[in-house]
Every structure is written in C-alpha cells, then in structure tokens.
Design a protein around this nucleic acid. Structure first.
Lengths: 337, 337
DNA sequence: CTGTTAGCGCTTTCAG
DNA sequence: CTGAAAGCGCTAACAG
C-alpha cells in the first residue's frame, strides 16, 4: 500500500508537491478550484501530514513538555487536565515526563529536552532538587520554560503560583481559632518554594496570635512514606502530642489520617488537621477537615496559556510575569452540585 | 551561536558526518579512538540528536500516545504513572491525549494519530463512544493499539483489564453479607465494557443469593454531575430508598457521599456504599467503605510492557493477548506502611 | 497562480 | 575503518 503523502497527492492530481502543500495550508495564491481538488483527494485518502517532516523543516514541533514530579490523586492530575485542554484548543501536543521526585531523573529529562523536541516547557521542580544548573542550562538554550506551583527562583521566567504564604497563614489561623495551641507543621521538603512559603505563613500566624513556635513541631517529612510514617507515628504517640496539624501537602495529610486511625486518635476531638489538598473526598473525611484547595485546573490552564502566548510572540524572554492565583479554604459541607 | 548537530561535530573533528553518526551509535566498524574523540566533543558541546530528523529518517518515533478520558483523582493518574515509568525505562516518550469523555474529541485524536506521530497507542475508550470505526481505521493502518481498562471489543488486539465481572459479584456479595436487601447499581455508561461487566456480576450475585433484581435500582448515571446528582438525589430521597449502593466508578461513589451528607443519610447505618475506587483516602471515609481497588499502576505498566514488546518484535498483529489482573476488596483499617 | 529547487538533521546503503 | 551521496516528507525561497 503506497503511503499517502504530498508526493502521492501531487502525482494523482498532476500537480507539483509545493502546490499541494500550499493548497492544504490554504495559501492565498492557489486557485479555489485547485484547492478544492486537493482537499477532496486529501480527504478521500485520509491524508495526515507527517509531523516530523514538518517539525524538522520548520524547527518547530507544536509540542510542549510537562515535567512534573508525579501524577497521582492530586494537584498535578488536575493541572494536566488544564494544560491539556488549552493545548488541544491551540493545536499543541503534550509530552509528559515524570521525575518521581528524583533529582537525577530531572537532570536527564531536562538534558534530553535540549534536543529541540519541544517548543516550550511547563515545569514543577522535584522535591529533591537543590541545584538548578540543569534548568539554567536549558533556559540558556533559549527554550521557553514556565514554572507552575513549585517554582525555581534561580531562573528568570514566568511563574504561576498560588498565594502560599497567605494560605499558610490562614490555615494556621483556622486551627488557632478552633482552639489549637500546639500546632505541628509537616514540611515536605526543605528545598521547595511552596513548603517554605507555607511555613513562613504558619510561623507568622503563630506569632500574630502570640503562640511561641516550637522547633519540635516543625516536622521534616519526605515523599517516601517509609520514612514519613515513623516520624509521624512518633509525633502523634509522644506525650507532647500536638492538638493541630497543618500538612503542607496532601500526601502528608493522608499519612496523618492513617496514623491517627492506627493510634486511635480521634479527629477532630484529639487533633485537628488542615491540609493542602485537591481530593474531592477530603472535605467528607471528618468535621475538622477544612482543606486549602489550590485551583489546580486553572493553574494548568494559565501556565499553558502564558507559554503559548510566549511561543506565538516568538520571543523567548518576552516578558516575565509572576501570576499568583488564590487558594481557598474549603470547609466541610460544600457539596458543589 | 552555531547549532550543535552532526555537521558541526564532523567539521570540528575533520570527519564525515556519517562517521560521527556511526561513532555515536557505537557502531562496530569505527575505531575506538575515533569514537573516543567523537564522544568527547559531543559531551563537551552537549550534543543532543534532533529527534525529528531521526524519526523522519527511520520512520519510528520512539513515542507512544496515551489516549484516555481524563486524568483526575483516580485510576488514570496511577495508570499514567505506570505507563510513564516503563516508557522512561525503555527510552520512549509519552504523549497524552484526553478525550474528556467526548466521542468527537476521540475521533479527532485518533484521526490525527494516523500521521505516524507515534509508534503505538495505549487507549481507554470514552464513555460516550458507541461506534468504534475510527479506532478500526487507525488499527487498519497498522498502528499497534493496546486497550486497557475500558476496552473495545470490536478490535482484535491485546487488552489489559481487571476481573470486572468477578469484582462486581464480590462487591455485591459484600453488601448482601452485610445485610443489604435493596442494592442499587450505579452505572456510568451503557456503552462501556467495564460497567456492563460489573453489572453482570451484580446481577448474578443477586440471583445467587435469591434476591430479585429490581429494574428501578439500576441507575444510569453519566460523567456529568449536573445530570447525575439529581438522579441520585431522587434515588436516595425516595421512599423506597436502597440500603446498599454499588457504584461502578469512583466518581459516582463520591457523588453518593455528597448526596447522603446533604440529605443527612447516615452511612453505613442507613445505606452502605461500596465502590470501585483508587482514592487513598476512600477507606478512611467511613466504616462501610470497603472499596474495590484496581491495580492501576500495574495495569499501566503491563499495558506499556505489552505494547513495547509488540513494537520491538516489529509485528503489529503479533499475538493478541488478553491479560486480566485482579482487583481487590480493600477493607477499612488497612494502613499500608 | 504554479513549478523548480534547496535544504531541515539524520541514517544508511554503497564504495573504497 | 571511513567517506560520499541519497533521501525520509515537508516548507519556502525564487522563478516564471
């Protein structure tokens, strides 16, 4: 079976390849009737242009990469939905790369992306990334990068984030107003912008309400449950158990629930938990489960929009902007439909 | 800044382009020292081969497409994780396409994929897909397709599923053994293999325990909450309220919870709910929340493995196999770490 | 309005 | 062991 490409169409129509090409791209200087003939045959043979040939020629791939830590039960799923919906609308393709929170993987992915496979990159850095020279290198090659959520301060480019400091403050305040005195903060990584900003909000809220911060209540957890669980178990079974927990990420909130259940600690009577979370069920979990929910879908959409705008202006460093969207405290009992 | 491609390397090393190309691919017939020189310069200049040029030349892209309805809070997130992990291992790239449960989008995506952009496709069909001729067409072009979870019977290719009939039976049995007499089944779509098989399991379980099935308890829901919520509200506020609910997909379970909360129906006292779900928090929700959990990550991995094996054998229709993985009833209180 | 031609960067015969 | 040359399918000058 002969392949259906421009050559084939040209031959069958007795036209030059370039004419067919132009007709299909609806170029001004092709007669209506030629166009019609071309379109009809293309339709009939189900012609689809070879994207690699045209990418090679045009040095543009209409493809973007989304580089994220993971995609499971949370924020990133929704962000991908947002990104993909804009990409589809704009006729772009979306490549997914997961770092699995692993610095080495992030390095090898970013290295590969220097190949020109993509026109631009949407990225949320890994929790284990301390050195960002691999990203700098990529950025220096002139490939547009937009950060979302987990940003990288070392690189001057657009970022889409949420009001992490603010939400941290409000979350802590919420616990305080509900009577908590000993509030633990569960950090996810010391290198991440988000957890640090959230922590600052937490600390300022304590200060604002004249609560002395306790170093022992700032808990360093990680992505690895095998490490986090024992730490949380210790925290929650110790005699100086906190009466409130602010989990900086969803995963740690879930871990806390599991441990509380295991240790028969009642929520919210014994300990109240508040968390960043995009789980639809989270608000159903228990009466104390007010969550801080990031507009993940919108963040994805926004990030993609900013990137595409940049790509269309065709100016890599065009205008860096930092867009901050608002998270919201979602109380229980807020059925949406 | 001059681009760094084979030509550039060749020039700087005073070699032919083809020699450099072969050296980089570690071809047998290049002298060790030439190889060394080439590798070193490539390293120094940070050479990354242009993927589009090589895809064009080789007619292979080392890229696969994942075509799924959505990626949010559930099964598909984990499946993507599985797929991506294998892809990364094998050096493949992953394009994501979301149909948003929309037949038209699915058609246009599959049409585009005839372009040769990908070497193979992993697919879970949309809930609104009745006619699968667009997939047949794609398959006829010789592009390997593997279905996972939501399979399409009309196409003879490999499929990775779970034991839907069985799980449906067991889920229903579980409710019966917990005293339910009037069990509702929440279907997601009449066109989907999974919901139909799960329903068959449900019906057979009822029969096995001598419970007369009630047509009114088989509820057709959809992906659209705006439609599903009123239906569920009606079901749960009617005087013949079911004492058990088997939700065929996670989304409908969440909806049921919301409605129960809204109507002050106590779970599990008034109604017990069991659902297919991969939410980590699901088992925490309430005592009746035994979930049927599909090994989503493994399904993703398996599907990708089967596809890559096929691609490597280089024989599209090589050997179709249907792999059935087991879901498991996960009771409450099963903290994993 | 249409055709000719020269590549995009890479792989792969075929020669030597 | 290395080089020359053709060509994957498409686009974009440049001619006419």
């Amino acid at each position: 079976m002969e392949p259906v490409n421009l050559k084939r169409l040209a031959k069958e129509l007795n036209l030059a390849i370039s004419t067919v090409s132009r007709a299909l791209r609806d170029s001004y200087d092709i007669s209506p009737e030629t166009k019609k003939r071309v379109f009809e045959l293309a339709q009939k043979l189900n012609y689809e242009p070879n994207p690699y040939a045209s990418s090679l020629r045009k040095q543009k791939s209409r493809t973007i990469a989304v580089v994220i830590p993971e995609v499971a039960n949370n924020f990133f799923s929704l962000a991908i939905n947002g990104i993909e919906s804009i990409a589809q609308e704009k006729g772009y393709h979306v490549l997914i790369y997961l770092t699995h929170e692993d610095y080495q993987k992030e390095v090898s992915i970013t290295r590969h992306l220097q190949s020109g496979r993509v026109d631009g990159i949407l990225m949320s850095v890994s929790a284990t990334t301390e050195d960002s020279s691999h990203i700098v290198e990529l950025h220096n090659k002139g490939i547009p990068i937009i950060f979302f959520d987990r940003i990288c301060d070392a690189i001057d480019t657009s970022r889409i984030t949420t009001d992490d400091y603010d939400s941290g403050f409000k979350a802590t305040e919420h616990l305080i107003q509900n009577g908590c005195k000993h509030i633990a903060y569960l950090s996810f990584s010391q290198h991440l912008s988000i957890t640090n900003k959230r922590m600052r909000g937490y600390l300022e809220a304590l200060e604002h309400y004249d609560i002395k911060p306790d170093r022992k209540l700032i808990i360093q957890c990680s992505n690895d449950n095998v490490l986090s669980y024992p730490v949380l178990r210790k925290l929650l079974s110790g005699k100086k158990r906190p009466d409130g927990i602010f989990a900086s990420v969803e995963k740690l909130a879930i871990a806390s629930y599991h441990i509380c259940e295991e240790l028969k600690i009642r929520i919210p009577q014994d300990v109240k938990i508040i968390s960043f979370s995009n789980l639809e069920t989270a608000s159903l979990l228990n009466p104390s489960m007010t969550t801080i929910t990031q507009p993940a879908f919108d963040i994805g959409k926004k990030a993609a929009s900013v990137l595409f705008r940049m790509l269309e202006k065709n100016k890599p460093g065009y205008l860096t902007e930092t867009i901050v969207l608002n998270s919201s405290l979602i109380p229980r009992n807020s059925t949406k439909v």
